[in-house]
Design a protein around this nucleic acid. Structure first.
Length: 525
DNA sequence: GCCCCTGCCTC
DNA sequence: TTCGGAG
DNA sequence: CTCCGAAGAGGCAGGGGC
């Protein structure tokens, strides 16, 4: 098992374009080409930028003339049927009437069936642009009828139940869900399992089981709503302790009892966190941005550039503040064009990380960088960590995926403040936490790090010591540094912290114009 | 009290 | 993490 | 190139069972 990860050595090199985070405009270090956003690394990975921070959120060309006056929308939409909904949602955005697809009254809770139908349409579509259109129409419908449900709709569309840093897990996997179906329908677990093998998907199994189910009672639970589904998911996630498994199953059964049509299928895929309809966060964001544009300007069709701009804004905003509970209300209240002002990078909320991207070799890199200044950086073999130090002295640590990791690294959380200079009142750093042998002063392989306890770690129980290798500073003394060049952020970084060997060190880097330096740098191992 | 299965998360 | 498919 | 989805290794945590 010395799998790839452990075979990577600590000395592996990683390089990034010198202007990393703020990709678009500013460059000061060479390479102005439009595709100067990426980096490549020599050995196996490299870092890449995150979601665009195009600093030019200029005034929208298509200012919304009248934004929120919903009163002029044609009234009600009670005559539409679920079937009709599907037809409407597939229309091109320009031809779509946001009041045509709803089969519930304005202000009423959005039925889960509406969303399930949209998922079903998307499932049958392979073009992401089309998926996005369908979802865009879906969002527009919700905005036009029951905007307060938009947050729930967006969460479910992303297959999330809360921001990732809130540590809310369903705790339901395939096995539990199979049991839940068996429970609910009084079917043998074995039958469910064999069906699962045949159909290949738990959602389909749920659907099939549901339709073959004979309802013995006339009692019919009220239709599911999007909010109900989301709330129940959260309830399931919070269930813990004795009998929690059974309780969770009970909640699932409750949902299943009320599910009809294609609802069971998507309900179970949601519960399994495997939507597999080809739609995920990025596509949802695109749809959301565009829906916002269309909804703001009912009378005129938005220009393509306005739509692109909206997409950029929403992606950027989400990478800075990945919390729909904050973004959606702001979006509904003030519109897409002001969103960036309202939703800023905030300490305490993890920012989307710039990720490395594999390259096939040094030669590939050599070409890419001749003529431009570039930088290389060691890629340490540990765990990514984003450390937030707030004004009040509190610390939070987040993983690569934005999960709160603070409880896993109490040693780091307690020590970081010792490495900052006293004038520093708040900061966010990006770093790699690496297992470290204090006696031998040596970095240990990832394997060792992975044996650390993961939750509620007690300082006294720590056996694997770690060293933090910082490579970026994203926020300092109340101000975001995201608009600055990587090279400049590094300067701030070096100015703001003191290294302590074996505890807190700066990642080894090199900056050059000479492609051949890449090779020599990578030989440092 | 101990062990296993399931879920989740890291790379 | 790496891979492969689709657009 | 971007996005999505699937797969794989190793390992901790929590619950359920005995």
């Amino acid at each position: 098992m010395s799998k790839s990860s452990s075979s990577r050595t600590i000395n592996e090199v990683l390089m990034a374009a010198a202007h990393a985070r703020s990709c678009s405009s500013k460059k000061k270090l060479g390479d102005q080409t439009p595709n100067s956003k990426e980096f490549s690394s020599s050995l196996s990975n490299k870092k890449m930028k995150l979601g665009d921070q195009s600093p030019n959120l200029k005034e929208p060309i298509q200012k919304s003339s009248k934004s929120e006056d919903q009163s002029l929308h044609p009234t009600a939409t009670t005559t539409t049927t679920p079937e009709e909904t599907s037809v409407q949602l597939k229309k091109r955005s320009g031809d779509f009437n946001p009041n045509s697809a709803a089969f519930w009254k304005k202000g009423e809770s959005v039925p889960f069936l509406f969303l399930a139908r949209a998922f079903d349409l998307i499932d049958k579509e392979s073009r992401r642009t089309e998926m996005s259109t369908i979802l865009c129409n879906t969002f527009r419908t919700v905005i036009a009828t029951t905007p307060k449900d938009l947050t729930a709709v967006v969460y479910l569309s992303c297959n999330k139940i809360a921001p990732s840093y809130e540590d809310l897990e369903l705790g339901l996997g395939e096995t539990s869900l199979v049991k839940a179906i068996a429970d609910a329908y009084k079917i043998d677990v074995k039958h469910i399992k064999s069906k699962l093998k045949i159909l290949g998907d738990l959602g389909l199994v749920a659907k099939a089981s549901c339709s073959s189910q004979v309802k013995l009672f006339n009692y019919k639970p009220p239709p599911l709503t999007v909010v109900k589904v989301l709330d129940t998911c959260r309830t399931i996630a919070k269930e813990s302790g004795k009998d929690s498994q059974g309780n969770k199953r009970g909640h699932v059964k409750g949902l299943l009892d009320a599910a009809t049509d294609c609802e069971p299928q998507y309900l179970f895929r949601l519960l399994q966190s495997k939507m597999r309809i080809g739609l995920a966060e990025q596509t949802v964001l695109v749809a959301l941005g565009q829906a916002a544009v269309y909804s703001e300007n009912q009378s005129a069709l938005p220009s393509p550039s306005a739509l692109d701009e909206a997409t950029e804004i929403i992606k950027k905003v989400y990478s800075l503040l990945s919390n729909f509970d904050k973004i959606i209300p702001a979006l509904l209240e003030s519109g897409i064009w002001k969103l960036a002002e309202l939703c800023r990078f905030t300490p305490g909320v993890p920012i989307g990380p710039m990720l490395a991207k594999p390259t096939r070799g040094v030669s590939e890199i050599l070409k890419k960088f001749h003529g431009s200044e570039f930088t290389c950086e060691y890629k340490y073999d540990g765990e990514r960590a984003q450390i937030h130090y707030m004004e009040d002295g509190s610390v939070e640590i987040y993983s690569r995926n934005g999960e709160r990791n603070t409880g896993k690294f109490p040693d780091v959380a307690n020590s970081v403040k010792r490495f900052k200079k006293s004038s520093i009142t708040s900061f966010v750093i990006d770093c790699e936490v690496v297992a470290y042998d204090v006696d031998k002063q040596k970095i240990l392989p990832f394997q060792i790090l992975s044996t650390r306890a993961r939750k509620g770690v007690n300082m006294n129980d720590i056996t694997v010591k770690v060293c933090v290798f910082v490579f970026d500073l994203l926020y300092l003394n109340g101000e975001s540094l995201l608009e600055e060049q990587l090279i400049d952020r590094r300067e701030h970084l070096y100015d703001s912290f003191e290294e302590v060997t074996g505890e807190f060190q700066f990642a080894t880097t090199m900056v050059s114009y000479e492609p051949k330096d890449i090779q020599s740098f990578s030989k440092l191992l």
